[in-house]
Design a protein around this nucleic acid. Structure first.
Length: 326
DNA sequence: TTTACTGT
C-alpha cells in the first residue's frame, strides 16, 4: 500500500465513522425509511453508495450501472481510462449521497414514493381472482387514510393537506383490488399510495370505471399485473411557449397531477401476454365516457414518466397491445 | 356498486 493510499484510507475511514453516526441517528426516528436494500434511505452514505462494486477504487475498475448513472461523465471516463488516487469519490461524498426515492413494499402492492411531489411515482399490483372477489369479512369502512410514518416529515403528505383542497384522496392501488385481506386493504389507504384526484367526474366516475375494468380482467385471467401513477404533462400556454403547470395543495405542497396512467398486463392460460395502457386527464368527464378514448401507446407513458414499464415482459409472447395484434 | 367528500 502506498503512502498516498494509506492517507486516503484513514481519511475515508474517519469520514465513514462520522457518517455512520449520522446514519443511525437519523434512522432511530419513527420516520425511518423501510425499504429494499439502499433504495429507501433518506440519504446514502458514501460507503453504501460504493459497496456494490468491490473493485471500485482500483485502477481500470468497472463501475456498476447504478453508480455510473449518478456520476458525471468526466468522472466515469476518468475512472475507467485514467489512473487516479483510490477512494477519491468516497472522499468527495464524505457527508452523504442524497439520492434515490424510497421504495415502499406493502402486503399486496409496492409503491415508489416521489418525495418531491409527495405522491407516488408508480404503484405496482399483481392481481388474481382471489384478490378481487367479494368478501364479507373485509370492509372498506374500517380502513382509514393514514400518513406514512416511514416517510421523512419533510416529504410526507398528510390528511390535512387534502382536507378542503377540493380534491379526493385518490387511490393508485385501488382498495377493492385487495378484498382478500383487511390488512392489504388497509395498506392501500396509506397516503404514500394516494394522489389528489378530481372527485366528481373523475375518481368517482371514469377512473372508477377503469378500476372496475381491471377487476373484471383479474377475474378472467390467470394473472394481471398493473402499474398506476401520476403524470405531469406539458401544455402550450397563450404566450406560445410550452410549460408543465400543476397546482399544489396543503402546507406540504402536495402536487396535483395533470394526468394519471394505468398500464395493465394480462397473462392468458396459454402463457401469452396482452397489454393495455391508459392515460386520463385529471378532470371531470361526462358519465359513461368510453375507456377506449384513453388508450395510448405505453411508450407515451414511459417518455412522460421517466420509467420503462413492464420492460421484462417477453416480447415474443406479447400478443396484443391496446387490443391490436403485434 | 364503488368512489369519496363535507358537515354535523
Amino acid at each position: 500500500m502506498s503512502k498516498y493510499s494509506r492517507l486516503a484510507l484513514s481519511t475515508t475511514c474517519a469520514g465513514f465513522g462520522i457518517l455512520l453516526g449520522r446514519y443511525y441517528e437519523r434512522n432511530n426516528g419513527q420516520y425511518r425509511d423501510t425499504s429494499i436494500e439502499n433504495l429507501g434511505k433518506s440519504s446514502l452514505t458514501a460507503n453504501d453508495f460504493f459497496k456494490d462494486n468491490e473493485s471500485f477504487g482500483k485502477n481500470q475498475a468497472p463501475i456498476s450501472d447504478t453508480v455510473r448513472s449518478f456520476l458525471p461523465v468526466s468522472t466515469v471516463y476518468a475512472s475507467t481510462q485514467i489512473s487516479r488516487p483510490p477512494n477519491r469519490l468516497q472522499e468527495i461524498l464524505t457527508f452523504g449521497v442524497p439520492s434515490f426515492d424510497p421504495l415502499r413494499p406493502f402486503e399486496n402492492h409496492v409503491v415508489l414514493y416521489d418525495r418531491r411531489n409527495r405522491v407516488p411515482h408508480w404503484v405496482f399490483e399483481h392481481l388474481k381472482k382471489e384478490h378481487v372477489e367479494k368478501n364479507d369479512k373485509v370492509d372498506r369502512k374500517s380502513s382509514d387514510f393514514t400518513e406514512d410514518q416511514a416517510i421523512h416529515p419533510f416529504f410526507r403528505s398528510t390528511n390535512a393537506d387534502y382536507k378542503r383542497s377540493g380534491y379526493d384522496r385518490g387511490h393508485m392501488a385501488a382498495a377493492s383490488n385487495h378484498r382478500h385481506s383487511q390488512k392489504a386493504m388497509d395498506d392501500t389507504f396509506c397516503l404514500s399510495n394516494i394522489a389528489p384526484q378530481v372527485g366528481k367526474g373523475f375518481n368517482r366516475d371514469v377512473w372508477n370505471d377503469l378500476e372496475k375494468y381491471v377487476r373484471a380482467l383479474a377475474r378472467k385471467h390467470r394473472n394481471v399485473y398493473v402499474c398506476t401513477g401520476p403524470l405531469y404533462l406539458p401544455r402550450l400556454e397563450p404566450d406560445g411557449k410550452v410549460y408543465i403547470k400543476y397546482e399544489v395543495i396543503g402546507k406540504n405542497n402536495v402536487s396535483v397531477p395533470t394526468h394519471f396512467f394505468k398500464v395493465i398486463v394480462m397473462e392468458t392460460d396459454k402463457g401469452e401476454f396482452e397489454m393495455n395502457s391508459f392515460v386520463i386527464p385529471n378532470q371531470s368527464f361526462p358519465e359513461n365516457t368510453p375507456l377506449k378514448n384513453f388508450l395510448v401507446p405505453v411508450e407515451t407513458i414511459e417518455r412522460a414518466s421517466g420509467f420503462l414499464l413492464f420492460d421484462g415482459v417477453p416480447k415474443h409472447r406479447l400478443k396484443t397491445i391496446n387490443g391490436k395484434k403485434v
